[in-house]
Design a protein around this nucleic acid. Structure first.
Lengths: 199, 199
DNA sequence: CCGACTCTAGACAGACCGGTCTGGTAAAGT
DNA sequence: ACTTTACCAGACCGGTCTGTCTAGAGTCGG
């Protein structure tokens, strides 16, 4: 029994969205290899053929899952940064506070792209989506560092990326809820040291 | 054709060692779930029954694989630190240089424990071995920080763990060979700031 | 009212998985 | 010389995986 009326003229969008939501929940919680197609379609309340007509094969679903996660993450980061902080310098440190929001989610299970690379290596969809995601992470810090007038924005960005990844690992594997705090403290010191405050 | 004479009175040690070596290569390179038992025994040149009599089941092999990796990593770290540096303060930063040695290995594929947690979650052997490994990582930094006379050794250790993990992630996912360098630079600054140099 | 379309439900095929079991070989211990 | 032990080779079992295919139900435009 599907939820509500399936609504007409939606073509594949409705089923596609539910499949994507199911894939997101299951893949993120249990891993890509560990979750079979049958689990996904059952959780989505959708027929198998619908999945294959919408995504081609499992790899297509994995690609869509990772791309959706990428856009959701980057959009949320951008919105939260704009809403919470004003200057690039503040936002550079604020990234870690926004990151910490996801740590508080009881369903947090670490970075989806790190996990995907570990449990489905040598899969084109994973490699490509991860490459895009990593590019975004670096650009996020680099652009802010540049806007903030850092002396060496590339170096500062690399340093902050280390903290960003490390914070996610500690929050995940060590169940350390204060990992974002630790990262933020160090980040603030690095930012202060790298940016000449002329105000 | 086995290598050399199988040698007598070795009981299960010879076959066990080859199984462990094969598991190490295959599991680390391709992931635990991705590698089947058949691949392992073929690579080790060993019969299936031998594997099951030596390790009980696949999970037993995984546990042994992770434990072996843990001891190899920690022993190498200890030896290199003792050989290269003298003071706890130097060793605190030197950890990142030793870590960088593994990044240079062409077979480097990131931290085995991070990968194992991603591709075989909810598996007791993985969870327990990872817990031990993470405890070791924290203790490594904490003990050195304490010996070096850090004002807040726990805090310093947590900060350095972030850099350690982050460095491994960047070296792996970004193929950034200078990740250890970046981490070392930041670590040196943190160590200098946290340890009152009274010499 | 009717074909075109989209969906569901589920059988099915082929591959691969972990794990067990049988049979044969060769050396060690007594 | 006989038994025991350790190992190899591989058939085999039940289960699960991805992906295809068939059959039917509901909905749309014309």
């Amino acid at each position: 029994m599907p939820t509500e009326a399936p609504s007409p003229k939606q073509r594949s969008t409705a089923a596609r969205a539910r499949l994507l939501a199911a894939a997101n929940e299951l893949f993120y919680a249990e891993g890509i290899r560990a979750v079979g197609i049958d689990r996904v379609i059952e959780h989505a309340g959708v027929a198998k053929a619908t999945l294959y007509s919408a995504f081609g094969n499992k790899e297509g679903l994995v690609r869509a899952y990772l791309e959706a996660r990428h856009t959701a993450t980057s959009e949320r980061m951008q919105q939260e940064l704009e809403a919470r902080y004003r200057t690039p310098k503040e936002r550079l440190v604020g990234v870690f506070e926004v990151q910490g929001l996801s740590f508080a989610d009881p369903d947090f299970r670490g970075c989806a792209f790190i996990s995907a690379n570990a449990d489905a290596p040598n899969v084109a969809a994973v490699e490509e989506a991860s490459k895009d995601y990593r590019t975004w992470v670096h650009a996020l810090f680099f652009d802010l560092a540049e806007q903030a007038g850092a002396k060496d924005p590339k170096q500062l960005a690399q340093q902050l990326v280390l903290l960003y990844d490390g914070s996610g690992i500690s929050a995940w594997l060590d169940h350390d809820r204060s990992a974002d705090n630790t990262a933020r403290t160090v980040a603030a010191a690095l930012v202060d040291a790298a940016i000449p405050d002329d105000l």
